[in-house]
């Protein structure tokens, strides 16, 4: 139920990102909400449902906007696995580190993606800009705080609504 709800939320976010977000003025920033959701999933979901959720959302993104199919699901899976591995049984699991970690991982992912393209398909690369990368990361960090609050609230709400197993009646 929880995974399904977050999947539907992810689909809604993808639709908003690919349609409405473009009509907002660029100075407002266009944070990558799907990346935020992927990071949130890695912190809060177990391995199997998390992997399923992240892969399916990455796959939809790939279908809607990918040029070389398969890159996006692979990227989100790697982000999920890295964040999950880093935060499981580790002090980084604490919420103090979670938001900075989202920003840091986003920064690294962009950098790694650029370097990979540089060695494999340099003709696909647009001009590199540190300023833009820092700006994108900053916008993502700012957007992560309210998003995590909302996602937490939604997660708790859904957990509370989870049907509890009925206690067995004793035979008299």
């Amino acid at each position: 139920m929880l995974t399904l709800c977050f999947f539907l939320l992810g689909v809604l976010l993808i639709v908003l990102e690919t349609t409405l977000l473009h009509s907002f003025p660029s100075w407002l920033g266009r944070p990558d909400f799907i990346y935020i959701l992927v990071a949130y999933t890695s912190y809060r979901f177990a391995w199997i449902p998390g992997l399923l959720l992240v892969f399916s959302l990455g796959w939809i993104m790939d279908v809607l906007s990918g040029i070389d199919l398969g890159i996006y699901p692979l990227e989100v899976l790697l982000v999920f696995i890295s964040l999950k591995a880093m935060t499981t049984n580790n002090p980084l699991r604490e919420s103090t580190y979670q938001i900075p970690l989202v920003g840091l991982s986003y920064f690294i992912v962009q950098l790694v993606r650029y370097i990979l393209y540089l060695f494999t398909e340099p003709e696909l690369l647009p001009e590199w800009s540190w300023g833009k990368l820092f700006a994108e990361t900053g916008i993502l960090l700012v957007a992560t705080i309210p998003c995590f609050i909302l996602l937490n609230a939604l997660g708790e709400f859904l957990q509370k609504r989870k049907p509890q197993p009925r206690p067995l009646k004793r035979r008299t």
Binding site: T18, T19, S65, I67, E136
Partner: peptide, 13 residues
């Protein structure tokens, strides 16, 4: 009906 959400937006639907 849709645009690539990335900053380097490269595709449309």
């Amino acid at each position: 009906i849709g645009k690539d959400p990335a900053y380097w937006f490269q595709t449309i639907l």
